[in-house]
Design a protein around this nucleic acid. Sequence first.
RNA 1: GCGCCAGUAGCUCAGGUGGAUAGAGCAACGGCCUUCUAAGCCGUAGGUCGAAGGUUCGAGUCCUUCCUGGCGCACCA
Length: 552
Amino acid sequence: MKSRIEVVLERSLAAAREAGALLSDSTAAGTLEVPKDRSHGDLASNVALTMAKAERKAPRAIAEALVVHLDDPEGWVESADVAGPGFLNFRLTPRFWQTELAELSAADGLRVPDFGAGRRVQVEFVSANPTGPLTVGHGRNAVLGDTIARLLSGTGHEVHREYYFNNAGRQMKVLGESVRSRYLEEVGRPTEFPEDGYQGDYIREIAHSLVEEHADGLADHEGTAFRAAAEQAIFEEIRRTQDRLAIRFDLYFNEDVLYSTGAIEKVLAALDEKGFVDRREGAVWLRGEAVGLDKDRVLVKSSGEPAYRLPDIAYHENKLSRGFDEIVDILGADHIEENKEVRAGLAALGLAADRVRPVIYQFVTLTRNGEQVKMSTRRAEFVTLDDLLDEVGVDAVRFFFLSRKSDSHLDFDLELATKQSTDNPVYYVQYAHARIANLLAEAGRQGVELPDGAVAVEVLAPLDDADDFELIGQAAAYAEIVDLAARELEPHRVVFYLQDLAAGLHRYYNRHRILGDEAPGRIRARLAMLVVVRKVLAAGLDLLGVSAPDRM
RNA sequence: GCGCCAGUAGCUCAGGUGGAUAGAGCAACGGCCUUCUAAGCCGUAGGUCGAAGGUUCGAGUCCUUCCUGGCGCACCA
């Protein structure tokens, strides 16, 4: 929407230079934006302010010169005024807005610039250890990662979604022992529950199903048999939860592959060869000073087992070797240091560590009845993501998780979320969509000819109200918002945009009785406009993975 | 002690690379349905943008130093 006026601005600057009103070598690096206060016009530019120094002239004088030399052959600008310290405020013509809307109504009218064309991006998210059901915290990760993947796909990237399945570590061993203990308990054998074992009911359930299947036939088995059963059961549950959220992965990457293929040893050998490794106290250390970390870190424990960060480096080495241009890691705040170590390790190996782009999200705190609920998988004090989905619903959960920037803590008040779920902003946006759908249906019943597909500017000529133009302007901002959200990996921008657009629609809907208009041409033009607004709402909600219902 | 993130209305939060009188939702108060969905709209009230300095035409935004909260700083993942 800005591009037309940017052209006018460029032409006017050139004209002013030619006329000697401006120094010819000065560069204009101003911004063009929709002013917060609409009384300032439809678009405002601060070029005059940014040029003031180079021009050695008062900003207002520069702005005046631009108004005098305004070059607008297409007739987009209704008026250009100098305001405040030197802002240039443009009011645009009906023709401008009608043209804008006509373009939006075209089949590819909402197309977002394909800045990712030809780029392969991997998004790694969730990656929860299969030691228990997904928690509310995992939910934030899942929804954030999935939506970032959608944003990247929507901007032309070739996206690969991956779940790093951490099935090789000590925690899995503890998991197996926990199940074994519950199993022995149930078949009446003496047992001692592991001190750091997983205490959740789901462990008992897994043990119980093993008793049903094998009676006490497994009593003399080692933990590994139990571990495999637990891993499978929990993994299936994780997948079920993801299905509810419509989240799919292209690949579940198993950590143990890194062991079986020798990738871990190779990475260690390479680091060693380059002199980044130290051996002392029976362990193998990554030399912090040499790789840009503040302290040394253990790569291989004195027990001979790799510490978690070594397979993690090997995993990222594997990712890079698959030729991705960018690797997005969705990580909780507690993993930021680890990611730094991984990138330092990659850089030390001479690999493109700068292709790894972490998206850090702060923790979700959960409150119930005004009290904070502590979440810990191990102590079984958690609310599962499934519970949350049961209580609040998929659309509301997704929308809520996305409605804060990832850097902010997210406070999920369960009482509020359940009790006031109808106040959830997601319904506000969906309602705007349903309202338009309903209006179009009513128009159909009244025999009004409905616009279908691309609409010609001539058809839109009856649009003459400032409210019409404002709504068109809001709808036209879609591509720019999505573009920014995708570049910055910030889905919350889409959420806030949709809320603004929905507010604009509701306001418009209350002020104008569309079907009651005495001019049939204007009814058709306005319906065409609302068809576009509905299209934008549906596209935006789809990016968030939220449904756009026709009836509510 | 060190590092990262946050601190904006009573509550939950928005405020690209500095722009005009700092916004939204919820909560509060007052209005609007015989007419396309009131899950909506309109209005009122609510702020020393954690504090103090600094940078400049201009700072919620950038710099410095503090204060408060969260998360890290394991031979746990």
